[in-house]
Write a protein that binds this DNA or RNA. Structure first.
Lengths: 125, 125
DNA sequence: TCCATATTTCTAGTATCATCGAAATAACGG
DNA sequence: CCGTTATTTCGATGATACTAGAAATATGGA
């Protein structure tokens, strides 16, 4: 990943409204959410929402897909992983023991402990 | 982690010079680097460097410690893990299978494959 | 004490960003 | 085709951020 790409992506997240949108989309998963749904949930005026969605999409961190009259926005989890990788790359001279093994720590907290059911039911879309 | 904290941290990283500094510090590990050393490596004017270091430190993502006439800056890896956690929390309705298990992906790429030597030698400080 | 070195604060010019009302565009259902 | 709903673009305003020279401060060594 190039540094300009990373800066762009981080900049997209470095804003309260956008970060809120992003987290909502992270929760929503690969299916994403329609713009209107996001605006309704977060109570953000249309124009403002559109501005931020465009900003998120511009970075590639979030993708958009038209479906009927709605536009669904979803996190691009692959890009997200790229970004995380970029941030931790070569940490501590390549010796995880040196740092707190940042990623491992985050991994342990990624998803709350749960009985792993194999095929979850969908709720949306 | 509170959203304001995350926005602050992400904002600190969302700038080319600062991100470069940050990555340098990530590589350097918990020992960190002296301000002057960073400036020399990156060829950033003192005033500019100071501005950005202060910005990084303000977020808590980077800590500073005076040692003799030098000031050492180092990544706070715990805070960094907190940030990563915040970004991935509750991904895909808590079912990692749904997304690409972002963090796991990143983990696989964190440090390059290597023969794990137990006690690496230090070079700096 | 005094100089050299490390780092920060001051300052000011320029650039970029966030917000949101109003108007424009697009796509559906009838 | 027309009204409705979803979403975007335009435009203006206020706020915040980046840069770097010059001056100030702090620390250590002679």
């Amino acid at each position: 990943m190039e540094i300009k790409t990373a800066v762009l992506a981080l900049g997209a997240l470095a804003q309260e409204t956008r970060l809120t949108i992003f987290r909502l989309l992270v929760e929503a998963g690969p299916e994403g959410l329609a713009a209107g749904c996001i605006g309704e949930t977060l109570k953000v005026p249309g124009a403002t929402l559109s501005f931020h969605l465009k900003e998120l999409a511009r970075t590639g961190l979030v993708s958009s897909k038209q479906e009927k009259q709605f536009i669904y926005y979803a996190v691009d989890f692959e890009r997200m992983a790229d970004l995380m990788t970029y941030l931790t790359q070569n940490c501590c001279q390549g010796m995880p023991q040196e740092c707190l093994t940042v990623v491992e720590t985050a991994l342990g907290r990624c998803c709350p402990p749960q009985s792993k059911s194999k095929k979850p039911k969908r709720t949306r879309r």
